[in-house]
Design a protein around this nucleic acid. Sequence first.
DNA 1: GTACGGTTCCTATAGTCTTTAGGCAAATTC
DNA 2: GAATTTGCCTAAAGACTATAGGAACCGTAC
Lengths: 194, 194
Amino acid sequence: MPRVGLTSDRVVRAAADLADEIGFEAATVSAVARALGVRVASLYSHVDGSVGLQEGVARLALDELADRVADAIAGRSGRDALVAFATAYRDYARAHPGRSQATRLRVGPDSPVVAAGRRHAGLARAVLRGYPLSEADTVHAVRLLGSVVRGYTDLEQGGSFDHSEPASEESWSRILDALDRTLRSWSGAATEPG
Amino acid sequence: MPRVGLTSDRVVRAAADLADEIGFEAATVSAVARALGVRVASLYSHVDGSVGLQEGVARLALDELADRVADAIAGRSGRDALVAFATAYRDYARAHPGRSQATRLRVGPDSPVVAAGRRHAGLARAVLRGYPLSEADTVHAVRLLGSVVRGYTDLEQGGSFDHSEPASEESWSRILDALDRTLRSWSGAATEPG
DNA sequence: GTACGGTTCCTATAGTCTTTAGGCAAATTC
DNA sequence: GAATTTGCCTAAAGACTATAGGAACCGTAC
């Protein structure tokens, strides 16, 4: 039996690729073993079972995605940064549906995935430096930004926008416009009368 | 063997209750059979296997949720309606995490779940009648509203807001304020200079 | 070159979940 | 009360997860 050269990293990466092809749910330990041309039991030395594999893919995807987002917003600010930030997430979800699903995995509070997730909050904060927000307001704005990006990509990937006109593309740019305006006028507006 | 009196509805309802207790993923056909004190095979006459059961729960949850949302926005308009609408979703997600997860299920375009989903878009449109939006703008606004509500509840349920201050409650009202302002000033704003 | 130790991958096995086929008994109908 | 329908059952096969333990491969040392 020739050795294939398995490592944790290779197994997780194979799982991520497989998830993009057949869906995150379907990328089971068994399926990954098949894809690698290896027996199922062989993977258990490299990843911590089914949940270890899923968390590995989630972590890989979150890291990869953070790299792309960081790259996208580098050298930009204000509306440019906002659009680059949000679009990096959306593009990733479309290019890597399986990895993207993995980032939705719910994990325990002590999972290493949590640390990877924290980096994303930092990137959102970086984008918001281009807007006139107090420190307190920034937390709320980070949560709004995260909600819009996550909600939109989820709904779009789920096909919720497929049966109404116009195309998702137009809504995307209109929503980013609206978000930009909202962030620019955030402070002080709360006290304005309706 | 005394008969338990199974029906499609009772099985799906048991699955939904179980999902709220132990999570949507864990509410398998086997687990539901155990909860009902019945053999696994007995369920197959009432629901169409594993995916049929999941889609049944998704449909039940979407219908139930639409009822609550409709009730919440009845007799309200403008900001009141917006807050009632969004908060109905958020409350449901917190009270029924399993059912709520079920509404995230991805289904084929011909599934009966799709029809149930369409009702929610209609409710969002109803809320937006209280805002000065053109027909074209309304589609974008529906998508924005859906994205924010879905994204926020997902992130909150996933615990993403647990490790930063202030509490989610405050962000929620601040975000709804911002959304209300955005919707009120949507039209025309696109042409305003920054 | 071969003996050793550690690692890699294997076979074997057991448990759980899904699904279908076919049977017996309870409810329903006349 | 007999016939029919229905409901729930047992039985069995296939897939995935997981663990235990064995054998082949690798580098190293002699």
